[in-house]
Computed example of a mutant assay.
Amino acid sequence: MQIKLELGDITEQTVDAIVNAANSSLLGGGGVDGAVHRRGGPEILEACRALRASHYGGGLPAGQAVATTAGRLDARWVIHTVGPVWSPTDDRSAVLASCYRESLRVADELGARTVAFPAVSAGVYGWPLDDAARIALETVRSTGTRVSEARFVLFTEDVRRAFTARL
């Protein structure tokens, strides 16, 4: 699999699937989640509400992933995953790694070959950038998948630098 790094807005990517760093409610929020819902339009929120009404009444647990339509985004699907909040006293690295593995598993189920990832948990959830980059890249590299391109779309220069140093 080819791994690419880009500085930019993940909602502007032309890929099979965009990974959304969602909150557990699946109903939109800030950061990547808010941007995906705003740009993707009401179709994404409608699909997320249907998920909440069926399998995910209590929300999507951290480390898991689920797909919906991409609405108005230039993608076929949005893969929603909930990252863990960073803790200095509780090692949640396995949960963060699971976000990437589960997103790739869902991508394979969908038949997606190109996937755009954000830096899950590295924003408002406070994960240290160097560690977030290490976990993301090591997990994506080591996960067996039919995805041919994993594109990390990083919103700020400091996040891009952290990922570049780890790549």
Score class of each variant (00 low, 15 high):
Arg72Ser: 08
Val95Glu: 13
Ala62Tyr: 06
Ala107Lys: 04
Gly126Ala: 06
Asp131Lys: 11
Gly71Pro: 15
Val124Met: 12
Trp77Met: 01
Ala119Tyr: 10
Gly63Asn: 06
Ile79Lys: 09
Ala132Thr: 02
Asp131Val: 01
Val115Asn: 06
Leu104Arg: 04
Ala62Met: 01
Ser98Glu: 12
Ala75Glu: 13
Leu73Trp: 04
Arg101Pro: 10
Tyr125Asp: 01
Val115Glu: 10
Leu129Thr: 07
Trp77Val: 03
Gly111Ile: 00
Gly83Arg: 00
Gly83Ser: 00
Ile79Met: 11
Val115Gly: 11
Ala75Ile: 03
Ala119Lys: 05
Ser121Trp: 06
Ala70Gln: 07
Arg76Cys: 00
Thr81Asn: 12
Asp74His: 12
Ala122Pro: 15
Thr89Pro: 00
Val95Lys: 09
Gly111Arg: 01
Trp77Gly: 02
Leu129Arg: 15
Val66Arg: 02
Ala116Ser: 14
His80Ile: 03
Ala119Phe: 02
Asp90Ile: 14
Trp77Glu: 05
Val106His: 06
Trp127Met: 06
Gly126His: 08
Gly123Thr: 08
Trp86Asn: 03
Cys99Leu: 07
Val66Phe: 12
Tyr100Arg: 12
Val82Cys: 05
Cys99Asp: 11
Glu109Asp: 15
Asp91Ser: 03
Asp91Arg: 07
Leu96Val: 09
Gly111Val: 05
Val124Gln: 13
Glu109Asn: 13
Pro84Cys: 02
